[in-house]
């Protein structure tokens, strides 16, 4: 069960890291290009640690690379939010803000995990994640409370992505079981903090908070949107076409 839990955490980081990497060379400013790719590298690093640990626990001789490159879409456990396309800078920031908020509270809880490795991993990652949240929150405020155009673009992104934010704190079977044993995060516990932070930043950013309560879900159980297939095609092509190739 902990193997699946590590994949849930790791897949979120890997897929979002890949999405952010797509901005490399295309961001609106050189400085933002570097900020986004720094975050991408942090996330990819976290995914590597989690996959290494997962492979070790599984004990079937797989490596981090096997886990990243040789699984198909239905074996990925990331939430639907992180596989959503970059669209424009506003979409990227809203997606990041939702994820960072969740990730921040989740890792804060994970530092208290009964699993020593996870607690250590969380303490290390939390420093990176704290900066990610600072970055995305600042940009929510800048764009939301910025010009008429930036406000409108951010509001559009928020309305479109809203239905994906609930899955982050909606426990599946794996979440429930690991919360019970004190290894994983009790999502019920961080849900109010998560919602409060989102509400606080959205109001400060002068955005209209959507009232829809229906949320998309399924990613954590391997039911993905069509976007994931395209990401994997990009990400896995080389290892699939030339198995074991190194450079």
């Amino acid at each position: 069960m902990i193997f699946k839990y590590l994949l849930q955490l790791g897949d979120n980081a890997l897929i979002l890291g890949h999405r952010l990497g797509e901005w490399c060379g295309h961001a609106p400013e050189l400085e933002i290009d570097m900020a986004l790719t720094n975050i991408a590298l942090d996330l990819t690093g976290q995914a590597r640690n989690l996959f290494q640990r997962a492979a070790e626990i599984e004990g079937k001789g797989r490596t981090e690379d096997d886990i990243a490159y040789l699984r198909d879409a239905w074996d990925f456990r990331n939430v639907l939010l992180v596989e959503q396309p970059n669209e424009d800078f506003a979409f990227t920031i809203v997606r990041q803000f939702f994820f960072d908020t969740f990730n921040y509270y989740a890792h804060q809880e994970l530092t208290k995990s009964k699993d020593e490795w996870l607690a250590g991993f969380a303490a290390k990652s939390l420093k990176e994640i704290t900066y990610h949240l600072r970055f995305s929150s600042e940009w929510m405020l800048r764009l939301g409370d910025g010009t008429e155009l930036s406000h409108q673009k951010l509001q559009t992104a928020l309305d479109e992505l809203w239905m994906y934010h609930g899955e982050l704190v909606q426990p599946n079977e794996v979440d429930l079981e690991l919360a019970k044993s004190g290894v994983g995060v009790d999502l019920e516990k961080i849900k109010p903090l998560f919602n409060e932070k989102i509400e606080e930043v959205l109001s400060k950013a002068t955005l209209n908070i959507p009232t829809d309560t229906w949320m998309q879900s399924g990613g954590k159980d391997g039911k993905h949107s069509e976007h994931l297939g395209y990401i994997l095609a990009d990400m896995q092509f080389l290892q699939r076409a030339y198995p074991g190739v190194e450079w």
Binding site: L30, E31, M34, A35, N38, R134, F135, E138
Partner: peptide
Amino acid sequence: SLHATDEVMAIENARDVYTR
């Protein structure tokens, strides 16, 4: 040097560009 809209962003950009 770098570009930023205000001092808060300038510090963050400096962190991202010059202290990696």
